[in-house]
């Protein structure tokens, strides 16, 4: 049984804390997008106008769902093969890998990572996507995996294409992969998007520009990772993600976990 399954939190120093599930660090709104960002027009009617309610965390926020390997299929993390009908998905063969960490630097083990994306032409397999680029009959565009005991994940896919969307007349989304992350607590739940190093569309994307901090934007851009690439086969990109960390707690008059 690993530490998380036993309800122990290992701190950066490796010492387990006695209070296993204290509250999470407060969310840094300087790096997170605001709800109301008129540059991304759809937010205008879908953003609360009242201030969010501030509360102290209880068990409802510091716990969250646990998933098991037997809930996933063997090909769930291989988008080249998991919807293959009469051939493999078309496009640049790509590995995406990295760690899911929390703000103290600890890898989050056994946490569910889900991902979805457009095909190599920039078209989604979705009944609402009418972009003129063709559907790839062998590409579904979604997958999922659980991190290992160190928080490491990987999956294989094809590199998605850029595509136009109606925000301004000529808005284009940079190539991106959507990620959904759980962590160990409902307060860590996060959805984000990964971009690719060197894409000039990132800097002019209205959705990217909802993020108020350039460093936070840069951390959404995956780096080409030649060491993880497979020669004559597949390029790799490295993408680490960070979820909120847990506060150390004063236990029996000793500050645990620092």
């Amino acid at each position: 049984m690993d530490d998380a399954a036993q309800g122990r939190v290992t701190t950066p120093m490796g010492k387990p804390t006695s209070n296993p599930y204290p509250e999470m660090y407060e969310r840094d709104h300087n790096v997170q997008p605001a709800a109301f960002t008129p540059i991304y027009k759809t937010t205008v009617l879908r953003s609360p106008r009242n201030a969010l309610l501030t509360m102290d965390h209880s068990l409802s926020e510091t716990t969250g769902p646990v998933f098991n390997h037997n809930e996933l299929g063997l090909l769930d993390n291989d988008l080249i093969l998991n919807y293959a009908k009469d051939g493999e998905a078309i496009g640049p063969r790509t590995i995406v890998h990295g760690y899911v960490l929390e703000e103290n630097g600890r890898g989050l083990p056994n946490t569910l990572v889900e991902f979805w994306q457009a095909n190599a032409g920039g078209r989604y397999r979705h009944k609402h996507d009418t972009y003129l680029a063709p559907i790839d009959p062998n590409f579904g565009g979604c997958g999922r995996t659980l991190t290992d005991e160190n928080g490491y994940y990987y999956f294989r896919t094809i590199k998605p294409g850029a595509y136009p969307w109606r925000n301004y007349t000529n808005s284009w989304r940079p190539a991106h992969i959507h990620f959904s992350l759980f962590g160990e607590a409902f307060a860590q739940r996060l959805i984000t998007q990964m971009y690719f190093e060197g894409d000039p569309l990132v800097a002019i994307c209205p959705i990217v520009k909802t993020i108020p901090d350039q460093g936070a934007i840069d951390r959404l851009v995956a780096k080409l990772d030649m060491n993880a690439s497979v020669p004559m086969d597949t390029l790799a990109y490295r993408f680490d993600m960070v979820l909120r960390g847990r506060r150390s707690t004063l236990f029996e008059n000793r500050l645990e976990g620092n």
Partner: peptide
């Protein structure tokens, strides 16, 4: 300390994933 990864919209095609 690391910084929490920035959120991005789930988008119109969230159902795919």
């Amino acid at each position: 300390y690391l910084k929490e990864t920035a959120s991005q919209t789930a988008g119109p095609y969230v159902h795919i994933g």
